[in-house]
């Protein structure tokens, strides 16, 4: 495994993924804000949550890229299409498994069944995160496929 290459391209891929998601939000394609959702686990303050969440998200993205790199090492090759394929699976997992589990892990997120409480007021994402706008799954897929393609194309095993 090439640690230097992983550190560099893992970070670049995470930055691109974050930018695509933030751009989708700015273009009003989705209301999903992963930095805010992550940061709200630590603080109710909107501004602080976005800042903390951005840091957590960048670290997460970097760590997740280890899985991609592990797969490339196992296969003995790294190509853009292989990275894109992993990104597709990654996005599908996040949308179908990760998002519905989020209310159970997030102290400030309302559950689908019980509605908001004094502590938990954040709107849950729902299936495929469709509660955040019907174009959310597309944004998530595009961002993760781009993330995987960057890793596959530029990571040197």
């Amino acid at each position: 495994m090439n640690w230097g290459s992983w550190l560099l391209w893992g970070f670049v891929a995470t930055v691109v993924l974050t930018t695509i998601m933030a751009g989708s939000q700015g273009l009003r394609l989705t209301r999903m804000s992963i930095p805010y959702m992550l940061g709200a686990m630590f603080t109710p303050s909107r501004d602080r949550a976005k800042l903390i969440g951005l840091g957590v998200h960048l670290m997460n993205g970097w760590m997740f890229s280890l899985l991609y790199v592990a797969a490339f090492t196992q296969w003995g090759m790294a190509t853009w299409w292989a990275g894109g394929a992993i990104g597709l699976v990654h996005a599908a997992f996040v949308l179908t498994v990760g998002m519905p589990l989020l209310p159970g892990m997030h102290p400030r997120m309302a559950s689908e069944q019980q509605g908001p409480t004094v502590m938990a007021q954040l709107e849950p994402p729902g299936f495929l995160a469709l509660n955040y706008g019907y174009q959310t799954p597309v944004s998530v897929l595009v961002a993760h496929v781009a993330y995987g393609m960057i890793l596959g194309a530029f990571y040197v095993p």
Partner: peptide, 15 residues
């Protein structure tokens, strides 16, 4: 109204 992130849904009553 939310357009910049997930909605915050305040409870009613005492809140």
């Amino acid at each position: 109204f939310a357009d910049d992130g997930p909605a915050v849904l305040p409870p009613l009553g005492e809140w």
